[in-house]
Design a binder for these strands. Sequence first.
DNA 1: AATGAATGAGAATTCATTCAT
DNA 2: CATGAATGAATTCTCATTCAT
Lengths: 225, 225, 225, 225
Amino acid sequence: MKSNQTASLSPRKRPTQLRATLTVSAILDATAYLLKDRGYERLTTNAIAELAGFSVGTLYQYFPNRESLIAELRHRHHQEVHAAMQRAAELNEGVNFEMSVKNIVAANVRVHAADPELHYLLSERYANIAFELNKNEPRFYMVKPKHNLIEKLLVRDGVLSSHHARTKGQVCTDIVISLTHAANKSGMSQFTETNLVDEIVCAVMGYLGRAGAAFNDEKTEGAVV
Amino acid sequence: MKSNQTASLSPRKRPTQLRATLTVSAILDATAYLLKDRGYERLTTNAIAELAGFSVGTLYQYFPNRESLIAELRHRHHQEVHAAMQRAAELNEGVNFEMSVKNIVAANVRVHAADPELHYLLSERYANIAFELNKNEPRFYMVKPKHNLIEKLLVRDGVLSSHHARTKGQVCTDIVISLTHAANKSGMSQFTETNLVDEIVCAVMGYLGRAGAAFNDEKTEGAVV
Amino acid sequence: MKSNQTASLSPRKRPTQLRATLTVSAILDATAYLLKDRGYERLTTNAIAELAGFSVGTLYQYFPNRESLIAELRHRHHQEVHAAMQRAAELNEGVNFEMSVKNIVAANVRVHAADPELHYLLSERYANIAFELNKNEPRFYMVKPKHNLIEKLLVRDGVLSSHHARTKGQVCTDIVISLTHAANKSGMSQFTETNLVDEIVCAVMGYLGRAGAAFNDEKTEGAVV
Amino acid sequence: MKSNQTASLSPRKRPTQLRATLTVSAILDATAYLLKDRGYERLTTNAIAELAGFSVGTLYQYFPNRESLIAELRHRHHQEVHAAMQRAAELNEGVNFEMSVKNIVAANVRVHAADPELHYLLSERYANIAFELNKNEPRFYMVKPKHNLIEKLLVRDGVLSSHHARTKGQVCTDIVISLTHAANKSGMSQFTETNLVDEIVCAVMGYLGRAGAAFNDEKTEGAVV
DNA sequence: AATGAATGAGAATTCATTCAT
DNA sequence: CATGAATGAATTCTCATTCAT
């Protein structure tokens, strides 16, 4: 095991031929599989290459080191989350507050449901592995204050004074994310996807009601999800 | 690197002399420090021993392997949480529902505040390291269904039918734990301890209100915290 | 093969026990043997450890990387050269110019004769391997201007104006060193040690004579070597 | 890394088309550049190909392996030295001994001056890389006994008995080569080319004078350089 | 109780070389 | 002629663990 301090985390070379693109995909798929199967600690580049059906050398043509595999995996995952959130935000035009929250929550749950374990590993368990990556890449993600969707809704619908929207919005986001994650961790088994969404929306709305929010739900058309 | 499959996780020998007790403490302190400093992946027994001021050999006199260090650290941490919860439960006798919840939340927040990072590492990040330990040791911890304190309160106060208490209680516990953790992760900076407790209680009560709970708060005396 | 850019070149830990001292010696001996046998390019740490009768791990307890072995070997070699030159310089007190030159040349030749090949490898062939070492360590070595022994003699004996002493002294040193090395490279076979010394002294004196030096050799007693 | 034992060192195919000639030149230029930049140890065929603006595959169309690149580089270099020495030898017809020596020295210095570092690397530092090459190809080079030009002069002019000419001639050649190299290594900065030639001639003549040579310089015409 | 030298399996990474396109 | 994806043996280096002193 050698050190990996200053090594770049971005892919070494972008595949130009179709063949290479497939190779990279196969390697990332194998990485994801093994990451779930045995964790980062026991994840070896040789095992990844073998499972992907290539030699280690090939792996290292595209990835400068082990960490960069995680980085790329997370990058791709973030792309998906980003896209889902973008879509949810677009659907929320002209929709009332609770429905809007529901749309966001549903999008979040659904995107997690695709591969809960992988999501958990990439964004919680191994959150600090290869985290330097994407430092300056634009991230449209619920978590980031700049992109706090619920805060935006609170402001949009005048549910809370913009003074309170920041903090409360953050708490709401924490509730959404952590309940989603909590469900993930227990394997989603106790809830159907719909139930889970309802529970989470319920928690958010309950919290806001208690916290002094005034909902004026005149716009009721256009429920989505 | 030797294998670590079947090795026991419990400390090798309990220190009998005072000197040995101090040695063990020094080693565990060093472990905690380095765990926070570089994570479990980069945590080496030699580094721990050196920081503690002993040789590796000494470390291995008391701990059969690397994992057992984490196990013992977590064990000690759980003792503290256990004690805090025990105390909160005792204080709750004759106290109404909301206050009881508040007591539990406050105890939870306070116990996390001592060393948020270590707590996070032991119970989230490295939750699966050395988890076999204490398999049959009694654990009194919020998380465990058996010991779900809020569920017990729900039943005690007839707030929800025992039929619903299980699920809702779990969601409440998730809310408490995850909001506490979320605050931890952001360094507690945005909230005072009291504010945080209030927000969390607010979230829990709001959720339950929405979720159809009926609070009959005749017992109002004895608020704690 | 991993990179080795910023890694330190100094030994990792000084052996404290006698056993460890012997281990280090054995490792360095093996390194020297294999360096001569197959060159730096084909020198592997595993081979060194095996020949020394230890495991690689032991080697890496004392040396942080492959280069540091070369560095230490060169360091030890320089110590010897240093000592020999020191002795020659001391012997030169009250000795006339030519004899003084002869003493220096003889010391130089003798020190090279011990292990010509190793000397060649360390100071010529692999001169740029691990050269950062000893950057600030005092070196008393013919090569270094500060320690140019012949230049000092030229000044001492007024053989040349101090104006010319620097350049001519450097050329003389080059002659001594390079003829010694040249003899080394051809395995010393064509010369006995004495012949070689005579030839080199002859070259130096001839050069200086032609270059306009005025020898006043009143001090003739005390010839050494 | 594949083995490189039995592989031939001569270029794989001689370029026939103009384009191919340029390709080969580009590759060799890149090789020389990188050899100086990072040494043979860190010289990779991929880097060479990239710098030359071709793919590795193309490189391997013309060179069977990495060593053969060095071999060819050295071959071309030797061609130049050969030619220079040939010219010097021709100029020496009817020229007296000292002038003849000067011509040889000057030719040697000049040929080194073109690219001192590359010369040093090819003929000193990496002298044993790809040395099998040209085993039976005629080499007209100062170093080789067969071609020892100064020895020939010593015999030609009866300066020394042919008995002594061999050894003394070799020492002279060593002086010429090593002083030239020494100047190279220090970057030539301390001498102008003319000064250097003078110093070297001075050293050679001084040595021979001391060594009992009898110069009868009746042929004084035709000094060159 | 404490020491620290020794172990060695195991993991990351490189790079010369081939060959199908 | 040129390309560049793929190969995989070889090498460096780590670190948990043991054990003689």
